[in-house]
Write a protein that binds this DNA or RNA. Structure first.
Length: 570
RNA sequence: GGCCCCAUGGUCUAGCGGUCAGGACGUUGGCCUCUCACGCCGAAAUCCCGGGUUCGAUUCCCGGUGGGGUCACCA
């Protein structure tokens, strides 16, 4: 683990550390023109004031470690972060699906950092993908983040001095900025068709090209011709003109290292799509600058596009923020956390009865440690103890069993009155209970039967043992059943209406699905009823699914698929 | 495949040149107890490999290996 500054620096470290580094960095730059040149943030070391020489030794002219970062002379304590303080940070989710735990994870570090140093936490909606962005997704994300306890000083719902905070409402701003890039020669219009790009891509893959990317076909177009053709209404995009030689690097403040890329590795990124909307890269840089963001704290999936962002900051003549790239949350198989393999919706955790403060604590331990043996701590305690040297850069596996252990311990620690109250607010909320009673009353003879009757609407997995025989659908093989469940689960996510999980939309979707797949409604619905409830008898299927909720249904369908996978063929 | 990131028990981590490598989850043995759960006590299990630097590397450097990310008019 690297540090800002040696917490207990011994005289020998002081003598050896920086000086040996400076020599190495210097010679490696000169002798080996490798794409990746690592060096310490020498400014920080220099600011220890013990090595006036270090700066001149290790700071080549091309040092890109500049901007907001590294020049901070307040860098005297190990806990003082780089960059301008108080910080302004942001979480910038894309409203294209369910609120993701990865978003919450990144939000946590942004939020804690802002709170620790008296900064501001901004929420910005990155809805530049017209195809996939939805208002309901945006609302869900805000709801989920609030449930977890995050509060933002600026955002689409609370306003703020740098609004609007929804990128789709900032189109004019991007247009003006693109014109600046065009005028400065930092960007150019590209009229290549989808077909040409596809063909190019295929060629590159077939030729096993070392790196795929745009071939610069339109780079040579004169700005005048580009402008003329654009004025004629010809469809086009705007691309970033990346220098063909040299390297672009940035300092990653979490890793405490410079990360460099050969420019030839960097694609001429599209900045404006043919629909006139900016891509993430452009909008993100423009907005971060205009909103005064000082520290960009995001997932490491962004590392490879950071040089494009850096190039944009320079093209505009703007100071760069400090970059921190956090490790990605992983599935048990270590791939990037995905809903195919894991519940990733924040609502899943909410609706199955995880306590928000516990989920937050658990996520915190994934990338942060107190430094001592404590791992049960509150948000406030984390804020108090927070410093970047306590954050690890590896990608942690999201261990659901440990989350369960934390949650169980916290439930035990509650007094019964508190537990009772919280249960009434969530799992047994009046509206939810009422919805269940609406269906239960038709089917019970004694009031007391209501609890066993509605039990399917609670808990995670159900026991398929007693009903396993019933999923043997006539003329359908075991594999047919597995396939149709998988396909159903997959397609429902893509259906904009069905994924709201309202009964009517679910029914419409499911009937359409039957037509497409050739399954009889009766057979499919039986299957789904068993998957979702573990029973052959329940209230009307789509009401049942709606009450159980998307995440519970998803979990159980997946669970049944798993059970079927281990069962003998029929 | 190119580029980039990461690397301490199965999992999350502490560790900042000399430690019996600490904690947590999980696994496991026992105690407690009408059962289960909780709780308590104990156990097994880790420094990816190879070079280098050093009197001494889990720790610093390089290389390899492994894992991950990224190569879209998605973010």
């Amino acid at each position: 683990m690297r540090r800002w500054f040696p917490a207990r620096s011994s005289p020998s470290w002081r003598l050896r550390g920086p000086s040996s580094w400076s020599i190495r960095a210097q010679s490696s730059v000169a002798a080996t023109p490798r794409s990746r040149i690592r060096r310490r943030n020498t400014d920080q070391i220099a600011s220890m004031a013990s090595f006036p020489l270090v700066t001149s030794l290790t700071r080549p002219e091309s040092n890109h470690v500049s901007g907001l970062c590294g020049r901070d002379t307040r860098m005297r304590e190990s806990t003082t972060p780089p960059g301008r303080l108080p910080p302004r940070v942001r979480i910038a989710p894309s409203p294209t699906g369910d609120p993701h735990v990865g978003t919450a994870y990144i939000a946590l570090f942004n939020f804690v950092f802002a709170r620790k140093y008296g900064g501001r936490f901004v929420l910005r909606i990155e809805d530049t993908d017209q195809e996939r962005s939805t208002a309901s997704s945006e609302a869900a994300i805000l709801e989920a983040l609030r449930w977890l306890g995050f509060e933002w000083e600026e955002g689409p719902d609370v306003g703020g001095p740098h609004g609007p905070y929804r990128q789709s409402e900032r189109l004019g701003i991007y247009q003006a900025h693109v014109q600046r890039l065009l005028d400065g020669g930092h960007a150019y219009r590209c009229f290549c068709t989808r077909e040409r790009l596809d063909a190019l891509r295929r060629e590159q893959i077939e030729a096993k090209a070392s790196h795929l990317g745009y071939d610069g076909h339109c780079r040579a177009l004169s700005p005048d011709e580009g402008a003329r053709r654009a004025a004629d209404g010809e469809a086009h995009v705007v691309r970033l003109r990346v220098p063909s030689e040299g390297e672009t690097s940035f300092f990653d403040h979490l890793r405490q290292e410079t990360i460099g890329f050969q420019n030839e590795q960097i694609d001429d990124q599209v900045l404006v799509k043919s629909d006139g909307f900016p891509t993430y890269h452009l909008a993100n840089v423009v907005d971060d600058h205009l909103m005064g963001i000082t520290h960009v704290i995001r997932g490491e999936e962004w590392i490879t596009s950071t040089p494009k962002h850096v190039l944009l900051y320079r093209a505009f003549g703007w100071e760069e923020p400090c970059f921190f790239h956090l490790g990605l949350l992983r599935n048990t198989d270590r791939s990037k956390l995905s809903k195919r393999k894991n519940p990733v919706s924040i609502f899943h955790y909410r609706d199955l009865g995880y306590l928000p403060e516990t989920l937050l604590n658990f996520m915190a331990t994934l990338g942060f440690s107190m430094g001592d043996d404590r791992e049960r701590f509150t948000l406030d305690e984390m804020i108090t103890a927070f410093e970047w040297s306590k954050v690890s850069a590896g990608g942690p596996v999201f261990d659901a069993a440990k989350l369960d252990a934390f949650n169980g311990a916290d439930i035990r620690a509650m007094d019964v009155d508190t537990l009772h109250r919280r249960l009434l607010e969530t799992t047994l909320a009046p509206e939810r209970l009422r919805a269940l009673l609406f269906h239960a009353k038709e089917r019970i003879a004694r009031l007391d039967d209501v609890v066993p009757y509605i039990s399917f609407a609670f808990g995670a997995e159900v026991d398929y043992g007693p009903v396993l025989d019933k999923v043997k659908i006539k003329k359908r093989s075991r594999q047919d059943v597995i396939d149709v469940l998988e396909r159903f689960a997959e397609e429902i996510e893509r259906d904009p209406a069905a994924r709201t999980f309202e009964a009517a939309a679910l029914e419409a979707f499911s009937r359409g699905f039957c037509e497409r797949s050739g399954w009889k409604a009766k057979d499919l619905f039986t299957l789904l009823r068993i998957a979702v409830t573990g029973r052959t008898a329940a209230p009307p299927l789509f009401d049942t699914m709606a009450i159980c909720g998307k995440d519970r249904c998803r979990l159980r369908i997946r669970d049944l698929i798993g059970v079927l996978g281990g069962v003998a063929d029929w």
